[in-house]
Simulated scan of single mutants.
Amino acid sequence: MPSKIEPFEAAQRFISTQFPRCQAALLAGSVVRGEATATSDLDIIIFDDTLVSSYREAFIESGWPIELFAHNLTSYRTFFEQDCQRAIPSLPRMVTEGIVLKDTDIVEDIKREARALLDSGPEAWSDETIEMKRYFLTDALEDLIGCTTRTEGLFIVGALATLVCEFILRTNRQWTGSAKWMYRALERYDAQAARELVTALETYYQTNETDALIRYVDETLTPFGGRLFAGFSRGKSNET
């Protein structure tokens, strides 16, 4: 791979050669947040009114892997809405943090839309959803309690960590994420809860001891009625 040039210069060069007629472009991602690593790529968003629909494409240029998110001047709103519905505001966050590469007086309005969505937070979980999530957490927790093999335990613990993070965040009307972003969301919301979860996970990974993680999940569920199994029902018809 060719040697890398500065990310902003690489992004501008990419836009000028690949999308010279777009109305606007933003550089987002880890390089903008000052969190870039050796494997980081450039996240670039373009807005082009000639596009029929949104798409995503990967490139390698100027020594950089580039993730392109291409939108026309309205299609991005569908993705804003979808991201908000799943409580993972990837595109609104990218737009909000993005550094302008090109603009024809449209970026600030799009950024304003993104900021408003982020500030409002996701919709609150219904009581029915909370009950269902309690059931899923209980099921995973019981799997861990009954687990007798290290190999299966590794997968159960990973799933349990994701479920309990989601539960904490969504019951407090916080945005979530996937993979590393789930942890970052929890740390941003409650650093102490994030540290305690990591400690419980590390204890399991190093010693196979599950007590700390079981206690953590139980304490998370307690304000909502604790574990749930008997009495849970979905999809049952009331017809006789």
Rank of each mutant, 00 (worst) to 15 (best):
D211K: 10
I15C: 01
R115T: 08
V52E: 09
E67G: 11
V100T: 15
G98P: 15
C84I: 13
P223E: 01
G225A: 08
Y183I: 08
E239D: 08
L51P: 10
C147W: 13
T171M: 15
N208Y: 14
P2Q: 07
T17Y: 00
D105L: 11
F79Y: 06
S53K: 15
L154Y: 02
E35F: 03
Q18G: 01
I5R: 09
L160V: 06
L68D: 02
L221P: 01
E196F: 03
E97H: 14
P65Y: 02
E35R: 13
T203V: 13
S75V: 11
D109T: 07
A191E: 15
L101V: 14
L101T: 01
E108C: 06
I168C: 07
T210I: 12
T50L: 05
T207N: 09
G63Q: 08
I110E: 00
L163P: 05
I66T: 00
G231D: 09
A70R: 01
V31G: 05
D139M: 11
D103P: 15
R227M: 06
I60F: 14
D211C: 03
E196Y: 11
T17E: 06
L117I: 11
E202A: 11
G121L: 15
K180E: 09
R93D: 06
M94N: 09
V164D: 00
A25N: 07
I88A: 06
F229A: 11
E113V: 05
E196P: 04
E61H: 00
W64K: 07
A116Y: 04
V164H: 03
N208E: 04
P7M: 14
G146M: 04
T199R: 12
D143V: 02
A116T: 13
E166C: 10
D211R: 02
V32A: 09
E123Y: 13
T149N: 04
A58S: 13
T148Q: 12
P2T: 00
R227S: 07
L169R: 06
E81G: 03
V32D: 02
G98K: 13
P7F: 06
T37H: 09
S30Y: 01
S126P: 07
K180N: 05
L73E: 00
R173V: 15
G225T: 03
P20L: 13
T176E: 07
D103N: 15
Y135K: 14
S178N: 08
R234C: 08
Q85F: 08
A159D: 05
D43M: 13
Q206L: 09
S75M: 10
E152G: 02
G146S: 07
R234T: 10
R93P: 10
R112L: 05
T151I: 15
G98C: 14
A10G: 03
F136C: 11
G34V: 05
L73C: 04
S178K: 13
S90F: 06
Q192S: 02
V100N: 04
Y205C: 10
I44F: 07
S3G: 02
G177T: 07
E35I: 04
P20W: 11
